[in-house]
Amino acid sequence: MNGSITPLAIFFASIFTGNILLTNYLGMCSFLSVSKELKTSTGLGVAVIFVMATTTPLNWLVYQHLLIPFGLEYLRFIVFIIVIAAFVQLTEMTIERYSEPLYQSLGIFLPLITVNCAILGVSLFMVIREYSFFTSFLFGLGSGIGWFIAIIAMAGIRQKLRTAKIPPGLEGPGITLIIAGFMAMAFMGFSGMIALS
């Protein structure tokens, strides 16, 4: 084959041009409700990076070494969500037990994450695009960072908007969606920046 997909290209693409939130609309629910505050957004964003970077390779292992050998690919939806839920639960318990400050800043966001569609989305994309283990890890990490950047940027903008005059019907989700639209356009502009070949 004449040149293949480089893992590094996927890493950068998943942060910028193919930002999981801005091009695939994944993780919108928590994005809209949490992005009001910069501090909470940062906490949730870091938690998302962590969970995505770990569950994506984890699901890769489960898929390649458990589901495929037994011909159970069609059960992947259930299995992935169980893996994610169990992993999040375990991490929460571990953090709570060993580090009180970390739990206060990060742990409280973990339950919110199980219902974040972006996490499951990344695992499903990883399967359909037939990534290798290493690429899956970079893809998970990159998507997490991309989500993090999107939410803190949005939180920063929304804090500035607090004093702005907005038409009453647009307040809250309306204006957030419009800003997200502009951000999506801006992020598309990154496509010329990374030379792949």
Partner: peptide, 23 residues
Amino acid sequence: IMPPGGFFVLAIFIWVIRETIMK
């Protein structure tokens, strides 16, 4: 049909609904 379009149309939809029906 590109991703930003989805955000804009949804936002406008919410705006129109909130300004008319909900009011």
